[in-house]
Design a protein around this nucleic acid. Structure first.
Length: 468
RNA sequence: GGCGACGUGGCGGAGUGGCUACGCAGCGGCCUGCAAAGCCGUCUACACCGGUUCGAUUCCGGUCGUCGCCUCCA
């Protein structure tokens, strides 16, 4: 079990992972708001934290990954209204598509995927506790969190209270005691087709009369769902860097106020994916939908692309980046052709494998780890005799690339019967030193069957062009 | 304006006070009838200006530039 250090936004430095309970790590990552299909940028935290959990498991920890879905939200109301359909129906559909879109990455599912709409009891109870403890107040149907009641507010995003302003528009500001305060609960408004009554979840006497039926604010959903699944003070809270303020700041503050304890030990934030020089975002409109990217390039290339940069840094997105990632995958698959499957790797090559995992242990440095993986591949290619693939498989599994198979088909003679016949004809031409004909046949095979002919020691092999 | 991050070779992208990142692309070589794959080599990389140091891309200060957050946003 390696010593694992991760960057913590709160403290601004690397922090050693020290689980509350030996060997058990809880990870909560903020998932999408399901009002439209997710894009490649949304996939980044999903992939980063899924792979982090895999790495921790590899190191002998028992990791529990929780990724929520926000299915009650202004955005969803707006989108549903624009489409003239019930908001719950839109959220359910987009939730299903999110699951199938991320399923296509081949990483499996997080251990828990709670929905805000199904956590209403916990959310209401959480808000009630905040009111009881004097950190929140009901006003005109809404409930607000009193930011100045938390002296540590701003600790996560490193901002001073004087420099902030809580938004959600100016709407509701006349009901706030302080412009800094943010909504824990929003009373039902005209045009919203769902609402929950806090009295259904609380004893009547503990519910202030001014607290009306409505729906929860975004921040409280995550505090409640994270705590319910992982307990207070769990190990790792993750999400995109754009959530640091106000979302995570507010989550952290709510939990301090309600429980007198920090929500999480380590706050990890992934960088944004950029299209051109700008952040990729639905609001900017420069989106590459995840399902389209996966369909075009395949899950392996997409994963390779995402682990090609350090999770904290911004990452450039373009077709040529995916092309590049696809070529890297091809290099690995090519190397696999001459590895001995299921056999141990030479001890002399273990330093590359160890360096790979050491790099992951130091703030999950996937690009540095990849460098070691490719060193291993080069060494394997360089060796005169084929080596066992155990080390490589070990590394690829953690990157979610365990399903990679060697280049070329299992049964090309049957699958490419006509190409195979032409290739045999080409072999005869070569034997007769009729190279002009041999080359013509190779061109024909490529053009008509999308397969390349590769000459090897005692014969030929057929390689589908897209696998090269 | 405030807070934070960053400026690395054709591209992407790590990292380090003095020693090859890695990958993709290009070029040269080996291998091949020719290719493909692979291997070897190559492409004078660290925004600019000062400072500290025997020595800085790597530390400190400044300048210019870029990006993120400050409003829903992974």
């Amino acid at each position: 079990m390696r010593r694992i250090r991760l960057h913590d936004t709160m403290s601004g430095g690397l922090v050693e992972l020290r689980p509350r309970e030996d060997g058990k790590v809880g990870i909560y990552a903020c998932g999408p708001t399901v009002y439209s299909r997710v894009h490649i940028g949304n996939a980044r935290p999903f992939v980063v934290f899924s792979l982090l959990a895999r790495f921790l498991e590899h190191e002998g920890y028992e990791a529990t990954l929780v990724v929520n879905l926000t299915d009650v939200n202004d955005k969803i109301y707006d989108a549903a209204r624009a489409q003239g359909r019930p908001s719950a129906e839109l959220a359910a559909e987009m939730g299903r598509l999110y699951v199938s879109d991320t399923d296509a990455l081949g990483l499996g599912r997080p251990d828990r995927e709670p929905l805000a709409s199904e956590a209403m009891g916990e959310i209401v109870a959480y808000i009630a506790t905040l009111i009881e403890r004097g950190h929140a107040y009901a006003s005109g149907g809404d409930v607000f969190f009193e930011v100045r009641s938390d002296p540590r507010y701003g600790a996560l995003s490193h901002r001073r209270i004087e420099e902030m302003d809580q938004g959600e528009g100016i709407e509701g500001s006349e009901r706030k005691r302080d412009p800094l305060d943010f909504a824990l609960w929003k009373a039902h408004k005209e045009g919203e087709d769902t609402s929950w009554d806090p009295r259904e979840y609380l004893p009547a006497q503990s519910c202030p009369p001014e607290w009306a039926a409505g729906r929860p604010g975004w921040h409280i959903e995550c505090s409640a769902m994270a705590e319910e699944r992982l307990g207070v003070g769990f190990e790792i809270h993750g999400g995109g860097s754009d959530l640091v303020f106000p979302h995570h700041e507010n989550e952290a503050s709510q939990t301090r106020a309600a429980r007198g304890h920090e929500l999480a030990q380590i706050w990890m934030h992934n960088g944004m994916i950029r299209a051109g020089s700008e952040k990729m975002a639905k609001s900017v409109g420069n989106i590459a939908p995840l399902h389209e990217v996966v369909e075009k390039w395949g899950a392996h290339a997409v994963l390779m692309y995402l682990v090609g940069g350090h999770y904290r840094q911004p990452l450039a997105f373009s077709d040529s980046e995916l092309e590049d990632a696809d070529r890297r995958v091809a290099r690995i698959r090519e190397a696999m052709r001459r590895l001995r499957a299921g056999e141990a790797s030479p001890p002399e090559m273990a330093h590359s494998r160890d360096a790979f995992f050491d790099a992951l242990a130091e703030d999950f440095n996937t690009p540095k780890a990849l460098a070691s993986l490719f060193e291993w591949v080069r060494e394997a290619n360089r060796r005169p005799d084929a080596v066992g693939d155990a080390d490589l498989r070990d590394m690829l599994d953690v990157l979610g690339l365990g399903s990679l198979t060697p280049t070329a088909l299992a049964d090309p003679e049957r699958l490419y019967r006509e190409a195979w016949a032409l290739a045999e004809e080409r072999q005869q031409a070569r034997a007769a030193r009729d190279y002009a004909r041999a080359d013509a046949l190779r061109d024909q095979i490529r053009a008509e069957h999308g397969v390349d002919v590769r000459d090897v020691a005692n014969g030929f092999e057929l390689i589908p062009l897209e696998e090269r």
